[in-house]
């Protein structure tokens, strides 16, 4: 169970997140939609403390932090419970695909190298890259890199997977393999919060869709309701443009 209260982020006079309240149940798959610059990515980044929120409480399972007073150790604890998939993959450039997946297990969770590598090899099979473990990111296609990025997040075994526009940086030819992998993870009921512009995908995998505008959650509900019959005129206007 993840619970967020009053999450606020300002850049100077510009309020990017305006008191977000959000609960996510275990195994729930939540998609966040909305135009660019409405705070979707900032929401994810604040939940992982890649941006430090100005205010708000974040509770993940049995850990609870107040954003205003969160110490470095508390921030790290939150990060360990929230894995992150980046839009631009952000694989460790000096590590192989296998090492990228094993790195957090070894460094952060203190696993012995052999065990971490064994786990990483399992994940490589799951993401369909069993034969590319020794490849460095520079030698992988965009789609393969993003699959490793997802594999790295899987290794964290986190309560919440934060996925930030996973296909936006990809050439069209690679989008499908990444979405298929994410579908597989969603089907395994990994709790996830995913920002995406792929509306069909959101409709397919999400239990709940959130529409954000101006740093606030405007409307949320099951995909059937959100895509067919949204209540708020702003949601309707947005969906008219993208569907």
């Amino acid at each position: 169970m993840i619970s967020v209260r009053g999450l606020t982020k300002r850049y100077g006079a510009n309020t990017v997140l305006d008191g977000i309240d959000l609960d996510i149940g275990e195994g729930e798959r939540v998609a966040v939609i909305g135009s660019s610059g409405t705070g979707k990515s900032t929401l994810l980044r604040c939940l992982n403390f890649l941006e430090k929120p100005d205010e708000g409480d974040i509770r993940i399972g049995d850990i609870s932090v107040d954003a205003r007073t969160a110490s470095a150790a508390e921030q790290r604890r939150v990060r360990r419970h929230t894995s992150f998939v980046f839009q631009n993959y952000a694989l460790f450039a000096n590590k192989t695909a296998l090492e990228n997946i094993a790195e957090g297990l070894i460094t952060v969770r203190g696993w012995p190298k052999e065990e971490a590598h064994a786990r990483a090899r399992d994940i490589l099979s799951t993401i369909g890259l069993a034969d590319r473990g020794e490849s460095y990111p520079a030698a992988l296609s965009g789609g393969q890199q993003q699959r490793v990025g997802i594999g790295r997040a899987m290794a964290a075994d986190a309560e919440l997977m934060l996925i930030d526009e996973p296909t936006s940086a990809l050439d069209p030819e690679w989008i499908d393999e990444v979405l298929q992998l994410l579908k597989k993870i969603a089907d395994a009921r990994q709790t996830m919060l995913i920002v995406t512009h792929e509306m069909q995908f959101a409709r397919d995998i999400a239990d709940r869709v959130i529409f954000m505008d101006g740093g606030r959650i405007i409307e949320q509900g099951p995909p059937a309701h959100m895509f067919k019959d949204p209540s708020d005129p702003r949601t309707r206007a947005f969906l008219r443009k993208v569907l």
Binding site: N48, F49, L50, A72, R76, R77, R79, R80, S83, F84, F86, N88, Y89, A90, L91, F92, A93, N94, K95, E103, G104, T107, V108, R152, A156
Partner: peptide, 23 residues
């Protein structure tokens, strides 16, 4: 070194020292 390398290191929960040494 690209900013994304810092963010990826932090996102998995590394300390600053671990991030520096390993990535």
């Amino acid at each position: 070194v690209d900013r994304s390398q810092w963010e990826a290191s932090l996102s998995v929960g590394m300390t600053t020292a671990q991030m520096m040494r390993r990535i």
